[in-house]
Design a protein around this nucleic acid. Sequence first.
DNA 1: CAATGAATGCTAAAAATTTAGCATTTCGTG
DNA 2: CACGAAATGCTAAATTTTTAGCATTCATTG
Lengths: 225, 225
Amino acid sequence: MEQNPPLLTLLSAAEIRDLVAAGEERRFTDNQNIHARGSDLPGLSVIKSGRVRFGIFGEDGRYIQTGLLGQGHCFGEATLFANMPRAYDADAVGETVILSVSKKKFDDLCDAHPGIAKALLVTLTSRLYEALDFADDIRRLSIETRIAKQLFRFVASGGFSSETIPVRQTDLAYALGLSRVSVGKALETLKRRGLIELGYGEIRIADRAGLENWVIDHDSRHAER
Amino acid sequence: MEQNPPLLTLLSAAEIRDLVAAGEERRFTDNQNIHARGSDLPGLSVIKSGRVRFGIFGEDGRYIQTGLLGQGHCFGEATLFANMPRAYDADAVGETVILSVSKKKFDDLCDAHPGIAKALLVTLTSRLYEALDFADDIRRLSIETRIAKQLFRFVASGGFSSETIPVRQTDLAYALGLSRVSVGKALETLKRRGLIELGYGEIRIADRAGLENWVIDHDSRHAER
DNA sequence: CAATGAATGCTAAAAATTTAGCATTTCGTG
DNA sequence: CACGAAATGCTAAATTTTTAGCATTCATTG
C-alpha cells in the first residue's frame, strides 16, 4: 500500500526556503472553496497544513471526489506545464494553509534549483501510476476490494492518528462512484470477516494485516507470477 | 479531444540527437513482448516507430488494456523516478522500434539538458490528467459516451490515416473493462444515430462533429458553468 | 470458390447494482 | 434529557450488465 511522497519531503532545506519565499500564504476554513474547476490562474500550490479535497460537481448536483491531498503535497502542476485550466473543484478539509507560487516565480525558482523539477518528476510519476492503478481497480476488482484499497488510501493520504478513519459511507460512495447501498453491503462483508468495524461517520481498521491480505488475495496484480 | 504531446515533439534537435546517441535501438515484431509486468531494469524507452500496447493479464487470463502509445511517446518513467518495477506488460503493435536509454545515461543526459526534465514534466502532467479523466469517465459516464471518448483516444494516439479505426469490439471491451455484449449494444446506439459505422474489425467515425457533440452533451464537465 | 477461423449479431437467463423509500441509531445541542 | 439533524440499516422493485450460448457474416487462403 505504497503512497506517493509529498513534494516537500523531496526538497532540500534550501529549496524549501526559496519556495516559501516565492509564495504567498493563503488560509482557508473547513469546506471553503480554494478554486473552481475551469479557473485558470496558473501557479503551483503547496499544502502547508490541512487537507484539500478534489472533485467535480455534475450538473445533476452529484459530486464525485477524485482525490484528497494532505500536508506537503502540491497541486496545480497542470496549469504550469500543460497550460490547462483547473480540472477539479478544490475545497479545504479542515483549517488549511496553502502556499501559492505564481507561474513566473516558479519558473525562476526552477532555473535556480534544478532539484525542484526532479522532485516534481518523482511526485508526478507516482501520482500518475496511482491514477492508472485506480482506473484499473475500477475495471478489475470487486467492490469489497476497491473499498479496502480506498481505506488504505485514506489512511496514507490523510495522516490520521490511528486506524480510525473519519469517513462517511456516503463519502466512500462518492469517491468510488458507487451507491451508498452497495458500499454498505460491501462494508458489511468486510465487517463480518472481522477486518473492519463500522462507526457513526467513521470506519476502523480492526485487522490491518487481514485487510491487506484481503486485497492481495483479490487483486491478481499482487499474485505471484 | 486533446491528446498529450509525444515527448519527442517537446525536445530540441540537440536534445533529440544526444538522447538517440545515449540509447540503444531495439526492434520488435507485431505482438512481440517488450517487457513483462514486474521486471525492473530501469531505463527510459522512446518509441521511434510503431506502437506499444500496455495492459495486465489477470490470473483468470483476462486481459485489460490500459494504454496505447505511438511514435514519439516514451514510457518507463516510473522505473527512473519512482523506483518502481514495470507496472504493465508492454507489447508491440505492428513492427516497432524502441530506443532504450539506461538510467545512468539518462541521468547524465538530464544534467546536460535541463530541457529534457521540463519536457518530461509536460508529458507526465498531461498523462496524469488523462488518467484522472479516464477514471472519472468510468464513474460518471454512460457506456455510449465512454466508447465515444475511447474512439477519439484511439484516433489521437494511433495516428491512423483516416477516421477508420482498426479496433475489434473485443478490444474496446478490454480497454473499457466491459463485456462485449455491452459494447455491441452501445455501438448499435451510436450507429443508429448515424455517428459511426461498424465494420469487420474496424469502426468508422461517420460524423465526427456529431460524435463530439454526443460527448459534450453527455459529459457534464463540458457543460457551460 | 469452398473451407476455415475470426469477428459480429443476437438472445435469454442470471447476477449485480441502483433507486427510492422508510426505519433506526447516533450525536450534538438547547 | 428530549429533540432534531445526520448518518446508517434495511428492503424491494427497477434497471443495468454480464454470462453463456449459438447463429451469422466476413476475410483469407489453399
